[in-house]
């Protein structure tokens, strides 16, 4: 579904992503893990068209995507949950979800999807007329994911959904991501929390200083001594 080859991104001479290959097949759950500054978010930005890659190609269902602006991708079935959640703080939960369906015209379908998001996150239903800015971090993350689901995506890109959340909340968010995947949405999850990400995903890529150093099935990665040392806090 998503194929990345030789992707290279540089910020004014500094290579943040040094030619990576990555693939996500339809129906899969794939994670991209790595430490701070490894180039994960930059990779995602290049995948979504927020920044222009210096070289390489990004193909979605066979079509070249470099040069296609972010706002045009939503119509192609790609949704992004941006880093730091990016909810609209002064709009209510309901209005936020409405914005998620900006590109749709089917009033009834939108209504129905709104209820589905509320079913997925009952907490949001309780807070539907509260403004986004007054929600807790976890609730905001729920809102960001729910809002992305409002466009009925086939591919969902998540940028560090666990960032700044309490462990219990992270658990809950990840369960929901798994439930979304079970509904047939393909997922690419960019995460720092390697353990949790590998536990829910089928495959994983490990990124370090702009390069992909490992790529394997999630269980194998979880068992890999190098990964355990570097990301799972195991003593060497």
């Amino acid at each position: 579904m998503l194929e990345v080859s030789g992707l290279r991104v540089s910020y004014g001479g500094i290579n943040a992503v040094k030619g990576i290959d990555l693939a996500v097949r339809a129906g899969e759950m794939v994670t991209l893990i790595g430490a701070n500054g490894a180039g994960k978010t930059t990779t995602l930005k290049a995948l979504t068209g927020l920044i222009r890659p210096a070289a390489g190609s990004v193909r979605y269902n066979g079509a070249e995507m470099t040069g296609v602006a972010l706002h045009r991708r939503i119509g192609m079935g790609i949704a992004l949950v941006p880093e730091g959640r990016g909810i609209f703080p002064r709009l209510t939960v309901e209005e936020n979800l409405g914005m998620g369906a900006y590109c749709r015209n089917d009033r009834d379908g939108i209504r129905g999807d709104c209820e589905r998001v509320y079913a997925l996150f009952p907490r949001l239903a309780e807070r539907r007329s509260q403004t986004g800015g007054t929600l807790s971090g976890g609730e905001q993350q729920m809102l960001a994911i729910g809002r992305a689901m409002m466009s009925r995506p086939r591919l969902l890109l998540l940028d560090e959904p666990s960032m700044g959340l309490a462990p219990l909340m992270v658990q809950k968010i990840f369960e929901t991501i798994r439930a979304i995947a079970a509904d047939g949405v393909t997922i690419l999850l960019v995460e720092q929390n390697a353990k949790l990400a590998l536990e829910i995903c089928q495959r994983g890529y490990v990124m370090e200083s702009g390069e992909i150093i490992l790529h394997d099935n999630a269980p194998n990665l979880l068992a890999n001594p190098q990964v355990r040392r570097a990301y799972l806090g195991e003593p060497s």
Binding site: L80, I87, P89, M99, C103
Partner: peptide, 15 residues
């Protein structure tokens, strides 16, 4: 949407 958050607005499909 753009008044609130420009990147998020783009992610909603707004040009």
């Amino acid at each position: 949407a753009i008044r609130e958050d420009e990147v998020a607005a783009q992610a909603m499909g707004i040009n």
